[in-house]
Amino acid sequence: MCIGLVASIARGFPADLLRAFSQCHDRDHIELVDGEAVGHTAALQNLDLDIAFLVGPSTWPGCDAATLWSERVSVLMPKLILYLAARG
């Protein structure tokens, strides 16, 4: 899987999260590509990228888009006791 990221998020939390996900799923090759929005949309249209995370306008010709967040981002996890119990 080839994932495009723009510079403003390529070095932040989303990129770190994707890298961690990639390490946990090492049998699935995930490549992160840093670039500009216009280049990523062209790569998506040419099927050179599978998905791209962009900031700014959410409408791009030839691409489906979904807004992931517009405010603060939160991460939720089960309480430690429930997590440990489930893991055995």
Rank of each mutant, 00 (worst) to 15 (best):
L47H: 14
C2L: 13
P14H: 09
V73W: 03
D64Q: 09
M1S: 13
H29T: 15
W69H: 08
C24N: 13
A15S: 14
D50N: 13
D16V: 01
P78H: 03
G56E: 06
W60A: 11
I9S: 07
L18Q: 08
L44F: 06
L17D: 00
L68I: 10
A42E: 15
E31Y: 01
V6D: 12
V6I: 13
T59H: 10
D48E: 15
P78L: 02
E31D: 15
R87P: 00
T41C: 15
T59L: 08
A20S: 10
S8I: 09
P78K: 01
D48I: 05
R11C: 07
P61R: 02
P61K: 01
D48S: 12
L54F: 11
R27A: 14
L84W: 05
V55H: 08
H40F: 06
G4L: 03
I51L: 15
N46K: 15
S74R: 06
L54A: 10
L47C: 10
I51V: 15
I81T: 10
A7W: 00
A15L: 03
G39K: 05
C24M: 13
D34M: 14
G35Q: 12
P78N: 03
D34Q: 15
I81S: 12
S58C: 11
A65N: 04
L76R: 10
T41M: 12
Q23G: 06
L5S: 03
P14G: 03
F53L: 15
P61N: 05
A20I: 00
G62H: 07
A65E: 02
A85S: 05
M77V: 11
C24S: 12
L84H: 10
A7T: 08
I81K: 08
H29N: 12
L44A: 05
H29E: 15
D64N: 12
A15Q: 11
A65F: 01
I51E: 02
A20M: 04
P57M: 07
V75E: 01
H29Q: 14
